[in-house]
Deep mutational scan, measured.
Amino acid sequence: ELSWTAEAEKMLGKVPFFVRKKVRKNTDNYAREIGEPVVTADVFRKAKEHLG
């Protein structure tokens, strides 16, 4: 699991709890794919757009 900024964690907190774990995993995987060592708010937004 990658490191997350406080802002990205806050955004994740707005995701319904029953899918939060999956969203975190998918976002981590997306960040790795694009070469990001940390999940930022920008990476979170891009993952959301990319993953739907």
Rank of each mutant, 00 (worst) to 15 (best):
E1A: 12
E1D: 11
E1Q: 13
E1S: 12
E1V: 10
E1F: 11
E1W: 12
L2K: 05
L2N: 05
L2T: 07
L2Y: 05
L2P: 08
S3D: 09
S3G: 09
S3R: 14
W4N: 01
W4A: 00
W4Y: 02
W4R: 00
T5Q: 03
T5M: 03
T5G: 03
T5L: 03
T5P: 01
A6M: 11
A6R: 10
A6Q: 10
A6G: 07
A6L: 12
E7A: 09
E7S: 06
E7H: 05
E7Y: 04
E7I: 05
E7V: 05
A8G: 02
A8Q: 01
A8L: 00
E9D: 05
E9H: 06
E9L: 15
E9N: 06
K10T: 11
K10E: 15
K10W: 10
M11P: 00
M11C: 06
M11F: 05
M11D: 04
M11I: 06
M11G: 03
M11L: 14
M11R: 04
M11Q: 06
M11E: 09
L12V: 03
L12F: 04
L12G: 01
G13L: 15
G13H: 13
G13S: 15
G13F: 13
G13M: 15
G13E: 15
G13P: 04
K14W: 07
K14M: 12
K14E: 15
K14D: 14
K14V: 07
V15I: 11
V15N: 03
P16L: 05
P16E: 05
P16T: 03
P16V: 04
P16Q: 05
P16D: 06
P16R: 04
F17T: 08
F17S: 10
F17N: 08
F17G: 08
F17Q: 09
F18L: 12
F18D: 11
F18H: 14
F18P: 14
F18W: 15
F18N: 14
V19P: 03
V19K: 13
R20D: 02
R20K: 05
R20I: 04
R20Y: 04
R20G: 02
R20W: 04
R20S: 03
R20F: 03
K21G: 14
K21A: 15
K21W: 14
K21P: 12
K22I: 13
K22C: 09
K22P: 04
K22Q: 15
V23T: 07
V23F: 08
V23L: 09
V23N: 03
V23Y: 08
V23S: 03
R24C: 03
R24W: 04
R24Q: 06
K25R: 13
K25T: 12
K25P: 02
K25H: 13
N26C: 08
N26F: 14
N26W: 15
N26T: 09
N26P: 01
N26R: 12
N26V: 12
N26S: 11
N26D: 15
T27L: 06
T27Q: 01
T27D: 00
T27F: 09
T27A: 08
T27S: 04
T27I: 15
T27E: 00
T27P: 00
D28N: 10
D28H: 04
D28C: 05
D28S: 07
D28P: 00
N29A: 14
N29G: 07
N29V: 09
N29S: 12
Y30C: 02
Y30V: 03
Y30M: 03
Y30H: 03
A31E: 00
A31G: 03
A31W: 01
A31V: 03
R32C: 06
E33W: 13
E33H: 11
E33S: 15
E33M: 15
I34T: 10
I34D: 03
I34H: 15
I34M: 13
G35A: 05
G35F: 05
G35H: 06
G35T: 03
G35E: 05
E36W: 06
E36D: 04
E36G: 02
E36H: 08
E36Q: 08
P37T: 13
P37E: 11
P37S: 14
P37C: 11
V38G: 03
V38A: 06
V38H: 06
V38K: 07
V38E: 07
V38Y: 07
V39A: 01
T40C: 03
T40N: 07
T40Q: 02
A41W: 04
A41D: 05
A41T: 07
D42C: 06
D42L: 08
D42W: 09
D42S: 08
D42A: 10
V43P: 00
V43H: 02
V43G: 02
V43I: 10
F44T: 01
F44E: 01
F44H: 02
F44D: 01
R45T: 08
R45P: 01
R45C: 06
R45E: 08
R45V: 11
R45D: 06
K46G: 07
K46C: 05
K46H: 07
K46Y: 06
K46A: 13
K46F: 05
K46P: 02
A47S: 06
A47G: 04
A47E: 02
K48F: 14
K48C: 07
K48I: 13
K48N: 15
K48E: 10
K48H: 12
K48W: 14
E49A: 12
E49D: 10
E49N: 09
E49T: 11
E49W: 07
E49M: 10
E49G: 11
H50I: 09
H50E: 08
H50Y: 13
H50L: 12
H50V: 12
L51Q: 10
L51M: 14
L51F: 15
G52P: 08
G52T: 14
